[in-house]
Design a protein around this nucleic acid. Structure first.
Lengths: 231, 231
DNA sequence: TAGATTGTTAATCGATTAACAATC
DNA sequence: TAGATTGTTAATCGATTAACAATC
């Protein structure tokens, strides 16, 4: 499954697909526990509220191959998704900022399941430094740069106050970080080769609230004009 | 700005645009503090690492109008975004599940700034019930349904263990909830009229890690073939 | 064999980007 | 006036959906 040195560069999997794969994975795991050997894309689609064709395309992107009339083999498909999402290759990551959210992330047991080892947190607040959360130490912020370098940390979680976001980012970048999972509402300035994944919680909530408002207007209009509900 | 009863239904604003608006808002606020009266889409685009044309389109969607050669008026543009994202109309919301993540959300002061009033949390754990986090009470889960109904709560944050996600969702739906901000890794089954915004943290981290892997392969290939870096 | 299900190729849809006219 | 900047219309791009052939 992993490409040989001379294999053509695998086509990058679209982000929407990547975001759906964990749902397939979870559902197919359930099928395994239920001792089922095969699962069809129709079953998956129905359970997850998706289009069966989309499920097929998504699974195809992982390299999973189905058998007509039978469906996808549970074991090999789980393997394909694991391989695709890198659940196998364990990777050490750092957390910067041990506030409420940071500590919640520190305590979160889910990372290990998908191949991440959250090693330590860093914070500038002396009251927090030296404490542990879920067995993970909170270290002095000044040690961040050196440890990123020495431990070849590639991914950092950024959960500091907005005001400190860019400064901490600059430190991380100078220390050689490759990717930042950004929980601050700041758009970070980084060199091209550094990846940033924004997790702007307030923005997501705003989206939801706006969509709610839209649906209110729409259903109001529909109740006036008697427009039938579509699928 | 808000549509009159007979106005045509405003075109729904695309989700990608909605997610970018908070960044514009924050930056333009900064301009206001710097006593600037106008801001151009070029300035915005540069500061946020976006395409100027995209910024223009996004602002247009909020109803903001710019002046050629001058740019967008800071005050009225901020108003337009506030109006568009509903920062004005305050809304009560509930949190279900007061674990680490839930408590972090309870303590988060940002919701109020964008018009949300996180009133209370609910949890099934008697050890948590009765406590307060940041002045917000944690209430007995059995009271959830009744209070959603009585207080006409429209939006709930779901931060319960995955195993309880669907059950709690069913309760919320029966109580008349209109939208769920879902922090569990479960795809919730809900009636058509109920909105769900998924916040699947593990999925996001997987995406980041996968993109990192891709970029490694790519930059390796480039270093072999000497492909010049593009903008 | 017949029918269910996958895989592939084409059509659609929506968001982004480009080109250019309008205007302060 | 000239030039910078917006607004609009068209082109591109990528993801989703549809149609249909292949196959167990």
């Amino acid at each position: 499954m992993s490409p040989s040195p001379n294999a053509p560069t695998p086509v990058a999997i679209p982000e929407p697909t990547l975001k759906r794969l964990p749902y397939y994975y979870k559902f197919i795991q359930g099928q395994r526990e239920a001792r089922r050997d095969f699962v069809s894309c129709t079953t998956l689609a129905e359970a997850l509220g998706l289009n069966p064709i989309q499920v097929r395309k998504d699974l195809q992107a992982t390299g999973a191959v189905g058998r007509p009339k039978v469906g996808y083999h549970v074991e090999t498909t789980l393997d394909a998704i694991e391989e695709c999402l890198g659940y196998h290759n364990t990777q050490d990551i750092f957390l910067v900022g041990a506030g409420h959210l940071g500590q919640a992330l520190l305590a979160y047991p889910g990372f290990a399941e998908i191949g991440f080892n959250l090693v330590a947190a860093f914070d500038a607040d002396p009251a927090k430094v030296g404490r542990e959360v879920a067995g993970k130490p909170i270290l002095e912020a000044s040690r961040l740069s050196d440890l990123v370098r020495r431990m070849h940390i590639q991914i950092a979680i950024l959960a500091v106050p907005a005001a400190a976001a860019q400064m901490v980012t600059d430190t991380l970048v100078r220390a050689g970080i490759r990717a930042i999972w950004n929980f601050t509402p700041t758009r970070l300035a980084v060199p091209r080769e550094v990846l940033v994944q924004d997790e702007n919680l307030l923005a997501s909530l705003s989206v939801l609230s706006k969509q709610l408002e839209n649906s209110r207007v729409k259903s109001h209009k529909e109740s006036i004009h008697g427009k039938p509900e579509e699928l």
